[in-house]
């Protein structure tokens, strides 16, 4: 690896350490702050203390008692999982073709999928709104799943073909020469090699769908299909007269923390997935 410079003085070291600390604070404090807010009681909510003086789970109890939030959470999970599965399956097929087969227009296909990834989603909102209303998909699960697949596919194809290029496909042939059937060669040799890439892509796609806000506010109108990011912007608290800050904080924590934990658990894979498109390993 290319480490810069060999001899580090103590002073320089501590400067780096301080910089390191500043960054960690910049990245972490916002998330910790909202967690702190979510555990504060109504009385101490505005005291500005970083660590809550009185801890409470009331905010969480309150949001899980409103059907609005619980429905939204269910919608978020269901819609993101279904979109991810479909986008990854279709993406795997396309990426296999891109990585292994030669066909006319291959370059164009990758170019197109990049273009889709760059496409401003806002532009699609009005036409999709029109189309979905006329075919009855507005405010339904498929109404959100379909655009999610569209925008997840390019990411999925791009990441997967980067992974698939690294697979030693000769092994498949070797297995067949050793007497394995094509199905066996695929299941025993190729699938285990491809699985990490597919899994990583699935994580990235899931995060993309889970985090969407634009389609979620424009293509839904009731809690029948509204996901948490959209529901959050309509949040007014457990009762009409209550300050919603505590419940909003709790809701934000509920949709953020699982994703962060997930990302941290699979840190190395995600880093590999993020860089696969830009850096060639």
């Amino acid at each position: 690896m290319a480490g810069l410079g060999g001899t580090e003085t103590l002073g320089r070291k501590s400067r780096w350490a301080i910089l390191d600390l500043v960054v960690v604070v910049y990245a972490l404090v916002p998330v910790l702050w909202i967690m702190s807010l979510s555990f504060k009681t109504t009385k101490t909510l505005t005291d500005g203390n970083f660590i809550p003086r009185e801890w409470t789970l009331d905010n969480y109890k309150a949001i899980f008692q409103t059907s609005e939030f619980v429905r939204a959470l269910g919608n978020s999970i269901g819609i993101a999982i279904i979109s991810t599965v479909i986008a990854v399956v279709l993406g795997t097929m396309a990426a296999y073709a891109v990585a292994r087969l030669d066909f006319p227009g291959k370059k164009a296909l990758v170019g197109v999928s990049l273009l889709v990834a760059m496409f401003p989603q806002v532009s699609l909102v009005s036409p999709l709104f029109e189309i979905e209303r006329s075919v009855g998909l507005f405010n339904t699960w498929p109404g959100l799943i379909l655009p999610y697949i569209t925008f997840a596919l390019p990411l999925s194809i791009y990441t997967l073909s980067a992974f698939f290029r690294e697979i030693p496909w000769e092994l498949e042939k070797a297995a067949k020469m050793d007497g394995a059937t094509p199905a066996q060669a695929f299941r025993k040799v190729i699938a285990p090699l491809a699985a990490p890439g597919v899994f990583t892509t699935a994580i990235l796609v899931f995060i993309l769908c889970w985090n969407d806000f634009l389609f979620a506010i424009s293509l839904t109108s009731t809690s029948a299909s509204r996901t948490v990011p959209a529901a959050l912007s309509f949040f007014t608290g457990a009762s009409q007269f209550e300050d919603p800050t505590g419940s909003i904080s709790a809701a934000a924590v509920v949709i953020t923390v699982p994703i962060i934990v997930f990302v941290l658990l699979f840190q190395r894979r995600i880093v590999a997935g993020l860089t696969s498109g830009a850096v060639k390993g």
């Binding site: 702050w33 959050l232 904080s249 994703i259």
Partner: peptide, 22 residues
């Protein structure tokens, strides 16, 4: 890396709310 990935993974809506509250 953990801190950075945490910030990266935060949903945009939650992130916006977090910064507003901060």
């Amino acid at each position: 890396f953990l801190a950075a990935l945490g910030a990266w993974a935060t949903p945009a809506v939650a992130g916006s709310t977090i910064w507003l509250f901060l």
